[in-house]
Simulated assay, not measured.
Amino acid sequence: MGPDLILKGGRVIDPSQGIDTVTDVAFSNGAVSRIADDIAPGNAEVRDVSGKIVTPGIIDLHTHVYWGGTSLGVDPEMFARDSAVTTMIDTGSAGPGNFAGFRKHVIEPAEPRILAYLHVSFAGIYGFHTSLMVGESHDWRLMAPRLAAEVIEANRDVIVGVKVRIGRHASGPSGIDPLIVALDVAREMDLPVMCHIDEPPPSYEAVVAMLREGDVLTHCYRPFPNSPVDPDGTIRPEVLKARDRGVYFDIGHGMGSFSWKTAKAMMAAGFPPDTISSDVHAFCINGPAYDQLMTMTKFLHLGMPLTEVIERSTAVPAKALQRPELGTFGPGNVGDASIVSVVEGEFELADVRGLVETGTQKLKAEGVVLAGRWWHGE
């Protein structure tokens, strides 16, 4: 039986298999079926993607897509089209008190894949707005470990971990204690934690010191205060220890968590992020983060090779999610693909402090394949 869809003549970059060559990709029955030159079309739909880059479906490990259910949510399908993203991980928009609505009204109707880190706070991130900011981890009464465990058990197909937000803005007087609760839930349910860090207290070092192998520290390139590097560019020892024991360091750009100064220091010190993510939400989608491709573009500007930028947006997040069927064109795996191009020119690239660098390349969305069918693009 022949393929259903063939992407013909693109530059196929699949870091999970060490592939970077001009070739064809075929999909059958919702899965990847073959990578080869000049695949015979038979009765398949054929899309000419010559001159474009074809990657396994891009994964954005940090998004907020509980559209309509929280003030910071964005429309997941719009975001997927604009950013060539096939899998979005919502990171704590919903907690155990409102996850059922998130699942029914957003996750299930959406065509792109949405997975979630469940917030350990009862209502998730409920007070995030430009005119009002209530850190959900401030109030100890909202910590809901038993309910979180129940909701995780009932939704293991879409819940991939536990989210908690720590810092002066997010946890305030509760300090680091909500992380203790989140870790307790994660151990009980055998899942990783994703931990947000903002301004101190507590310190960046205190937070990463508690994270385990497989846990994710997001906002890893945040600016001072609570930057991972000292003023002389030296990476703080607890950060290095955390990487050594297998903690994932995720970008989570957002509106407050990507600094050119920090990024340049970390890259110069040989500490690239494990995963590149946008932390897209309603208050950064129009800048400075914009979307996943813009965040990836900033790493091209920092000198990271394109293949590595793609790896940190496909294969590595799939590993962090413990979803080996994602982020790869291995035959039989999920038939998702992202088609992008590299546009040459001059582009303003802003960090969260308003510092603007001028880039000479920019990644642009050209098409999306979901479950082996052409979903979006010309």
Rank of each mutant, 00 (worst) to 15 (best):
Q17W: 01
G18Y: 01
G30A: 02
A31Y: 04
I39P: 10
P41I: 01
G42S: 11
A44F: 00
V54P: 02
T55C: 15
P56G: 11
Y66S: 12
W67M: 14
G69R: 08
G73N: 10
D75A: 10
R81W: 00
V85R: 08
T86V: 02
T86W: 00
T87W: 01
M88S: 13
I89Y: 04
A94Y: 01
A94L: 08
N98I: 14
F99T: 13
F99G: 14
A100K: 15
I107V: 15
E108K: 14
A110G: 11
E111Q: 14
I114E: 02
A116E: 02
A123P: 13
S137P: 03
A144M: 07
R156G: 03
V158L: 05
V158C: 12
I159F: 00
V181C: 06
D184M: 11
R187T: 03
E188A: 14
P200V: 06
Y204V: 07
E205K: 04
A206H: 10
H219P: 10
C220N: 10
C220A: 15
D232C: 08
R236I: 04
D244E: 15
H253I: 03
G256M: 08
F258I: 10
S259D: 12
W260F: 03
A263S: 14
M266E: 03
H281V: 06
Y290D: 00
D291Y: 00
Q292T: 15
H301E: 06
I310V: 15
A320N: 11
L321Y: 03
R323A: 08
L326S: 13
T328Q: 06
G332C: 11
A337P: 12
V342R: 11
V352W: 03
G354R: 08
T358H: 12
G359N: 05
Q361N: 09
Q361C: 07
Q361G: 08
V368I: 11
R373D: 08
W374H: 09
